[in-house]
Amino acid sequence: MIKVLIADDEALVRTGLRAILEAAGDIEVVAEAQNGSEAVIEAARYRPHVVLMDVRMPVMDGVTALREINRSPQPPKVVMLTTFDRDEYVYSALRAQASGFLLKDTAPRDLIAAVRVVAQGSAMLSPTVTKRMLDVFARWESPDSAAARKRLARLTERERQIARAVARGLSNAEIACEPGMTETTVKAHVSRSLAKLGLASRVQIALLVRDAGGNDPA
């Protein structure tokens, strides 16, 4: 059974998410929180496998709560909930190692699938979300490009090729259309790249490529 904590300041949102998740049969909502401070306390008390965390909440926002939760010895996976209307918090959440992002209008079946994927230890970000996030971050100042290129130098040529494709918002299936690739191979390369770079999601790879100017390391 996958144990989930829901953190959102809107009671109706929490109720809706609980109903959707518990209808899946293999997911149990063990606790709810109406702000980030409560989420930190409840996460320590109930030790859920996954936390669904609203980005913007009173008392303590979701990003600050994410950082606090990640300080625990065996932190749960945290998926941030966002509307993307003006979430400057999202960039900080990526840097704080969020395991995924979901739009608040995500279809029920996709919400359930995301919780299952994250609970298994994989990061979750759809190509659609990747593209939207990159559109938002394109307006922001990038970190030092030389440092980003140095990090990308840890990857093999094929891994960098796939990283550039991820940065274009392509799915594993779309990348697998390239000669000599299969979807299984692409997935394996992405997983290895995440491990080498110490990243948690496809969007973090995309941002690193963008910070490097989209270029191969020298």
Rank of each mutant, 00 (worst) to 15 (best):
I2F: 00
D8N: 06
R18E: 03
E22F: 09
D26H: 10
V30H: 03
A33S: 12
V40S: 10
R45D: 06
Y46F: 14
P48L: 07
V50P: 03
D54W: 04
D61W: 14
G62Q: 09
T64C: 02
I69P: 08
Q74D: 15
T83S: 15
R86V: 14
E88N: 15
A96Y: 04
A98K: 00
G100W: 01
L102E: 04
K104N: 07
K104D: 06
R109V: 14
V115R: 07
R116H: 00
G121Y: 07
A123Y: 09
A123M: 08
M124W: 13
M124A: 13
L125C: 06
P127Q: 13
P127K: 14
K131H: 00
K131I: 01
M133Q: 04
L134F: 06
R139H: 15
S142A: 09
P143E: 09
A148P: 08
K150W: 15
R154M: 08
R154S: 04
R158T: 11
R160C: 00
R160T: 00
Q161A: 11
I162R: 03
V166F: 05
L170E: 11
N172D: 10
G180E: 10
M181V: 02
R192E: 04
G198L: 07
L199E: 03
V203F: 09
Q204G: 10
A206L: 11
A206D: 08
L208N: 01
D211M: 01
D211I: 01
